[in-house]
């Protein structure tokens, strides 16, 4: 939504002076308004759609994630490949006691990001991953 508002402001700043000086038709004023309205609608509706399509599972040997609405991705990460587990919190996350969890392997392309966990859940999941990541050493 923030991006939509920024785009709307940029377009408005460009269009309004041109319309005021009669360089562009009045109708173009509708453009930034439409962008802002669309942005608001999407901000209200889209997150719920994305939430419905986000799942994760802590299996016995691997963690699995499924996410994406149009382009859907199913990631599988064996625990023994985990290098680090990072948690992060923005200012709004802190207010709502939420955390984001990111798992890193030796591949920069590994896609393992779980947003919007409760802080307690994030800590528990991190503990489980790190325990199981270290368990494979004994062979």
């Amino acid at each position: 939504m923030l991006r939509a508002v920024i785009v709307a402001i940029v377009v408005a700043v460009t269009v309004v002076p041109l319309v005021a000086t009669d360089s562009l038709p009045l109708g173009l004023l509708a453009v930034p308004v439409v962008i802002a309205v669309l942005g608001l609608v999407l901000a209200w509706w889209w997150p719920a759609v994305r939430y419905r399509h986000f799942r994760y599972r802590m299996g016995h040997d691997t963690m699995e994630l499924e996410h994406g609405v149009l382009f859907r991705t199913r990631s599988v990460i064996p625990y023994f490949r985990v290098q680090h587990v990072d948690t992060s919190q923005g200012p709004i996350d802190r207010r709502l006691s939420l955390s984001n969890l990111k798992v890193q392997t030796a591949s920069p392309a590994t896609d393992a990001f779980i947003p919007g966990l409760s802080t307690a859940d994030a800590a528990e999941i991190r503990g489980v991953i790190l325990d199981r990541a270290g368990a494979g050493d004994a062979v």
């Binding site: 994406g68 149009l70 382009f71 859907r72 991705t73 199913r74 990631s75 599988v76 990460i77 064996p78 490949r81 392997t105 030796a106 591949s107 392309a109 590994t110 896609d111 393992a112």
Partner: peptide, 13 residues
């Protein structure tokens, strides 16, 4: 393999 990703687009599905 460090991890794997199975990806589908709407047309692929």
């Amino acid at each position: 393999a460090q991890s794997t990703r199975l990806r589908t687009s709407p047309l692929q599905r």
